[in-house]
Simulated scan of single mutants.
Amino acid sequence: MSEENLAENRDEKAKKIQHPKGKLSAYERIDLLLDEGSFTEIDENVVSEENPDGEAVITGSGTIHGRPVYVFSEDFSIMGGSLGEIVAKKILRVMDLALDARAPIVGIKDSGGARIQEGISSLYGYAQIFKKNVEASGKIPQISVVVGPSAGGAVYSPALTDFIFQVQGIGQLYVTGPGVVKTVTGEDVSYEELGGVEAHGTKSGVSHQICENEEQAFEEVRYLLSFLPQSSEQKPPVFITEDDNERSVEILDNLIPENRNHPYDMNDVINNIVDDGEQYPIQSNYALNIITSFSRINGNTVGIIANQPLDFAGVIDIKASEKAARFVRFCDAF
């Protein structure tokens, strides 16, 4: 059987497991992320004795808006997407290729964590992935898309990446599940309460973007990458705009109220300054008293940080400080 037929058979089996749960298969997710027909699988023949037809991750390269990216997509239909020695090696290889090519890496997360059957080998694999995340930090954009459980050892790597997209209802990030919490504390808690979008999108600030479904998540990843350079050694793409860079923005003359006790929406200021009134907010559901977003001025990408008077009068508290500092750090690196 050809490699193409093997991939098709594997995908059909995965769909039968994933679709009833309201989730897509690993291959379907890659197809949504990348430009049509651009995906080239890497190490498809690297398998283990337990899974001779394919391991619990699919790795490869492709393009987004014609620019190269590397991707790994965890396959929950195979041993719960658990990470063993072979899975770790495949992920590390594609991360190395992304670093060598100075191209972004996108990790699609759907894993129950370490493969306990492999013991210390699995934990060592996680340690190597964390180390590689740190090595790539500030060099190439690292993006995580949480479209299933990211549990146990699988939860740490996303937190080391630059941006986390989390899908409502199916994407969860937690170190230990509800069963362990119940045993230790006696508290009943659901997976969603423990590590869902409410916990990480609005309270902890771990997730940068909350998405209603997988299609939205991958469309937003593509949009985010349009603002970013391929690496810290390159410049972001320049877009043609019809806005006159010498235009007068008269609305700004009367936007700020004379009464200091009356708030106003800082987004009105931003949207009237940037190209085509277009901005892409980051962590828009967390620390609402400060705005962090990507936009363009005269076709060039800019990072925007602004106090938001509509929330807590725009004062800077701990959460706002952390949100802004992390955004500044990313902009400084790239």
Rank of each mutant, 00 (worst) to 15 (best):
A287T: 02
V46R: 12
A88Y: 06
D317A: 10
K16G: 09
A98S: 14
F239L: 14
V167L: 10
Q18K: 06
S25N: 02
S122Y: 13
I318N: 05
A217N: 04
D11L: 04
G152K: 00
V274G: 03
V147I: 13
I291L: 06
K139H: 04
K109V: 04
L123K: 04
R260A: 13
S122M: 08
Q128M: 12
S232W: 11
P149L: 14
D244S: 13
K16C: 05
G171Q: 05
S321Y: 11
F227S: 05
S77I: 09
E135I: 08
L32V: 03
S150C: 14
I291H: 00
M266E: 14
S61Q: 11
I42M: 14
Q283C: 03
S144Q: 08
A320C: 10
A98F: 15
Q172R: 14
A26S: 07
V145N: 07
F163Y: 15
N271L: 13
E3M: 14
G277M: 01
N213G: 10
E250K: 11
V269T: 09
R247W: 09
A306W: 00
E220L: 14
E55V: 15
L24R: 01
E250M: 07
E44T: 10
I170G: 02
V175M: 12
F330A: 09
K15D: 06
I297Y: 14
E278R: 09
D275E: 07
G107W: 03
K13D: 15
V206S: 09
V249H: 10
T185K: 05
I164W: 07
N245I: 15
G81V: 05
I86V: 14
V47S: 01
K323P: 00
E212D: 08
V47L: 02
G80T: 07
V94A: 04
S295T: 00
H65P: 09
A88C: 10
F39M: 06
P257K: 07
S73F: 06
I251W: 11
L24H: 02
N307A: 11
Y27H: 09
A98Y: 13
G37A: 08
G119W: 01
A320G: 13
K323F: 02
I210Q: 03
R67F: 11
Q128L: 12
E74H: 15
E193H: 08
D31M: 01
D35P: 05
